[in-house]
């Protein structure tokens, strides 16, 4: 019970830390925030009178000390009020919901392709160790881990869109638009997961009961599908959860390279146009999602395995 409380306290502290870091960055970001807000309120109106700017400063407490502003902002966030985009004047929440779908679609498609490929590759590698299949899987996974995804994206565009003319290169919309981006992201997923799955499957093969099964005359194929496979699933899934940050980063690079719409493009666009409410919300969303998901995975693991209770104190 006490450890649970400490963990919860830790989570709370980290969440507060996230808001603090986010706010600090936006607080010190260059540019007059009052002017940005004014431009959003009165579009097309370039000569904004100083009285109006002063009014906005008072309304948004922009001249108040750091701590005051932070608490004010945090209170809004806690009430679920994330503000309104400076540039489009839509609520940040709406922008987020509108673009979430594209990113989720891209990520899930890539995840499905990448995992399936990784699974096939590592299964073949483990079933036929020290053959060209095994070596090939290792080589592909080390290339994939080192491959700059934006470069792979350009190569795919060059080969498939420019030369063959099969698929559209840039943009969002049809199913065709999804293929190249998700292939790019899937390649990276495949590379990193093949490595892990292969290791886990080899470890599963190393367990003593496998030898017993062989001695009892159970065919290799059945040993593999019944025992080795099952043992390799759970740890691989956990790793995917932990690597979510990299997955998200990959999705953002891919979105930007292929000029797709989605959260990554929104983030980049709003960062460049200094649309602070959008930037702050997105950054906070990514960080919070990461922390919460990892805490949940952690908690589930600990519930499943009481042996971990002692280790938790040191990690």
């Amino acid at each position: 019970m006490k450890t649970l409380l400490i963990r919860f306290g830790g989570l709370l502290a980290v969440l507060i830390g996230i808001t603090l870091i986010t706010f600090t960055i936006s607080y010190f970001a260059p540019g007059d925030k009052a002017e940005a807000i004014a431009h959003a309120r009165y579009p097309g109106d370039f000569g904004i009178p100083t009285e109006v700017l002063q009014g906005i400063r008072e309304e948004f407490n922009l001249d108040a000390p750091f701590v005051h502003q932070y608490i004010h902002w945090l209170a809004d966030v806690l009430r679920g009020d994330f503000g309104v985009s400076y540039s489009s004047r839509t609520p940040v929440w709406v922008i987020f919901v509108d673009n979430l779908g594209e990113t989720v679609t891209l990520t899930l498609t890539s995840l499905a392709i990448g995992l399936a490929a990784a699974f096939l590759l590592s299964a073949v590698a483990v079933r036929y160790p020290n053959t060209i299949w095994d070596r090939g899987a290792v080589v592909i996974s080390s290339i994939g881990a080192a491959m700059p995804s934006y470069w792979l994206a350009l190569l795919l565009i060059l080969g498939v869109s420019v030369h063959l003319g099969w698929l559209p290169a840039y943009g969002t919309g049809t199913f065709g638009h999804l293929i190249l981006p998700s292939t790019t992201l899937a390649f990276w997923i495949m590379a990193s997961q093949t490595r892990l799955m292969r290791t886990f499957m080899l470890e599963a093969y190393d367990q003593p009961f496998i030898e017993t099964l062989r001695l009892r005359g159970i065919p290799e194929r059945e040993i593999f599908s019944r025992h080795v496979l099952r043992h390799s699933f759970v740890p691989a899934l956990t790793m995917i959860g932990l690597d979510m940050a990299s997955l998200l980063e990959g999705a953002i690079i891919v979105e930007l390279t292929f000029s797709r719409s989605g959260l990554g493009s929104v983030l980049a666009g709003s960062v460049l146009s200094r649309d602070l409410p959008v930037v702050m919300f997105l950054v906070m969303f990514f960080a919070t999602a990461y922390v919460v998901i990892n805490s949940v995975i952690d908690a589930v693991q600990h519930l499943c395995d009481p042996r971990n209770l002692n280790k938790a104190k040191t990690s």
């Binding site: 830390g17 953002i252 690079i253 960062v271 990514f286 960080a287 990461y290």
Partner: peptide, 26 residues
């Protein structure tokens, strides 16, 4: 506890997202 929770807070921001945000805003 204090030092590691600060570390966790920084760790929560995916590298690339933090870099894009910082480099973009500044």
């Amino acid at each position: 506890f204090a030092v590691m929770r600060v570390t966790d807070s920084f760790f929560a921001f995916p590298e690339l997202i933090a870099a894009v945000t910082f480099a973009g805003l500044f």
